[in-house]
Design a protein around this nucleic acid. Sequence first.
DNA 1: GCTTTACTCTCCCATCATGGTAAGGTCCAG
DNA 2: CTGGACCTTACCATGATGGGAGAGTAAAGC
Lengths: 147, 147
Amino acid sequence: MRKTLPERAEALESGLVDIGQAALASGVSVKMLRHYEEIGLLRNVARTAANYRLYGAQQIHTLRFIKRSRTLGFSIEEIRELLSLWEDRRRSSASVKKIAAHHIEELQTKIAELQGMVNTLQHLTHCCAGDGRPDCPILDDLSGEQA
Amino acid sequence: MRKTLPERAEALESGLVDIGQAALASGVSVKMLRHYEEIGLLRNVARTAANYRLYGAQQIHTLRFIKRSRTLGFSIEEIRELLSLWEDRRRSSASVKKIAAHHIEELQTKIAELQGMVNTLQHLTHCCAGDGRPDCPILDDLSGEQA
DNA sequence: GCTTTACTCTCCCATCATGGTAAGGTCCAG
DNA sequence: CTGGACCTTACCATGATGGGAGAGTAAAGC
């Protein structure tokens, strides 16, 4: 156990936490923390003398923003735009809304595509006896036979 | 123009076509034709003396099966199973139906996930003025502020 | 016959977001 | 001082697909 209370308290006092604590606090994995830094999504990550990463409160906040955005399905590039708008006090809400609206459209397109697959498959499975015999409308459809 | 009619007719007589023709006939790209062969999804691809691939009518049929399966969202591994069932005259339709039913479940899970994102985003964009002002409920949500 | 064009071959790299592993360094409790 | 939990970088893998380079081949037109 390395998580001694005094040590953690000291870290909190200085306002900086290591990558493991940042992962816990943000819900982003350690692996992804390094990745986001590498691709420039999270900048100005401090280092200890031993080259350990150190994260401040604002960076944890940014990481939660990223995490929440990923949960809503935004791509990294979209998040990059959202972050720069978030940091820009002179932004217009219209520009944010535009990104969100576009994302909604993409999601709905994807949903329609998947739903089309489901509809076809449900029809086919409905027609399939699902017993021990080999006759199968599903395979007939896949093989292009007009059953 | 290389597609001379006599030449194509000759190819059809021999029952073998080159990779470009196979791609056209199956709807699978040339790139994917090579890939499917490499991963063992399509076997016994013949070659000319000059090492060109040659596809027979049965292989084109198999490729259409694969194409159709991909269109319905089956993974390569699922298609591998479907193909072996297709080729097995002693199969039970139940085993095919099982694969399809499982796939439907996965699709529906994915749809529910995406629909959840859409619902949240639609609520947020509905609350967002989308004008020139910086105030934005979308960013407020992403940054974890309880607006 | 030679040139041009269209096709084919293999091999390697990129996507997207994420995880795994290996080999080594650091920090702290016991 | 040792053990173990943690950190570092570097590389590889996923799944299905596409892109491109460099070289060879087939056929049409001159």
